[in-house]
Design a protein around this nucleic acid. Structure first.
Lengths: 165, 165
DNA sequence: CGATATTATTTCGATATCAAATGATTTGAT
DNA sequence: ATCAAATCATTTGATATCGAAATAATATCG
């Protein structure tokens, strides 16, 4: 038994599933981090660069909701990316509340170089599952991720989102 | 298409699956956090209490590997738990390098009270999947979590592990 | 037009997280 | 018995992360 919980079978099954799900996420994340493809980039920094690379310039709020991170967090992550000269911030001329984000040439060069490497490593890690199993896992995760809401969200990048958070 | 990556179909499928998987993990984590059952406890603090509750006293290294967190991190998390009087640290008399951890009465009372609540919420969130789907998801996640290694690890608690990290 | 509401970002304080370095202790091998 | 290597925990420094509160700009409505 993967859990010590004594309760109704529905809850036991749910806990069991949850444990395996959560642990797989941690293990996979750790393994990806150890492949060292990202160099000094953190996962979130990579996510920001990747999102800008694939979707073009965006404002901070958009990045925040796509990555499911707080706006305060994104501010800090962007500070660090900007400090390293990978991202540019510019106040929007029309709506001066917004800050438009874009990749610098250096940032674009970097993400163009490492994204395919990261993709290859992800493919390698996922290869323990057959294509049909991957498809199935994707379908179950999508359902689980959306939860008890109908509104269908469309995912567009390696870490994009339209979901509420 | 959920990804903008142009490459061989294997990689595209893997990326697509990875996105859904990762996003489901984030979304679920966020939703659980918003249920507010844990009060002031963080997820990791809850994990520590829950592990001690179900497995009994352990040393820090054991907690660290069960939760897939660094020992440095666990040191800090335990500092905070100890400060709140939920956990006790005692140098092992036999091997004085180790620190044995146990729940205080206050800690035990707390985890005994909130664990069932958290379990119920998890069950509620997982309920978007049929029992058979949950079972399937669990099996796929287990395979993915173990990765390209043979050594079968046994999961015992809500967040336990014997895996390398 | 002006008060109010909404939206976007930043700041702040607390906690988490890792990797690397350090300190303490034990074990093993000579 | 001693010294080298391994093990366990802590510290340190950098980054992440959240939520709440503060700030700033814009939009809306009466």
């Amino acid at each position: 038994m993967p859990t010590h919980f004594k309760g109704d079978p529905k809850t036991v099954l749910a806990l069991d599933t949850f444990i395996k799900f959560t642990r797989a996420a941690s293990a996979l994340e750790n393994r990806l981090a150890h492949h060292n493809v990202l160099g000094d980039l953190t996962m979130t920094q990579f996510g920001v660069l990747e999102t800008l690379y694939h979707l073009g310039p965006l404002c901070q709020g958009a990045i925040s909701s796509k990555l499911l991170k707080s706006t305060g967090n994104i501010t800090l992550v962007l500070d660090n990316l900007e400090r390293h000269g990978l991202v540019r911030r510019e106040r929007d001329a029309q709506d001066r509340r917004m800050v438009n984000l874009s990749l610098t040439p250096k940032g674009e060069e970097l993400i163009a170089r490492i994204f395919p490497l990261q993709a290859a490593i992800i493919a390698e890690e996922l290869a323990v599952l057959e294509p049909a199993e991957q498809e199935l896992l994707g379908r179950l995760c999508k359902k689980l991720g959306l939860g008890k809401q109908a509104d269908p969200a469309v995912n567009r990048t390696l870490s994009s989102s339209e979901e509420p958070h």
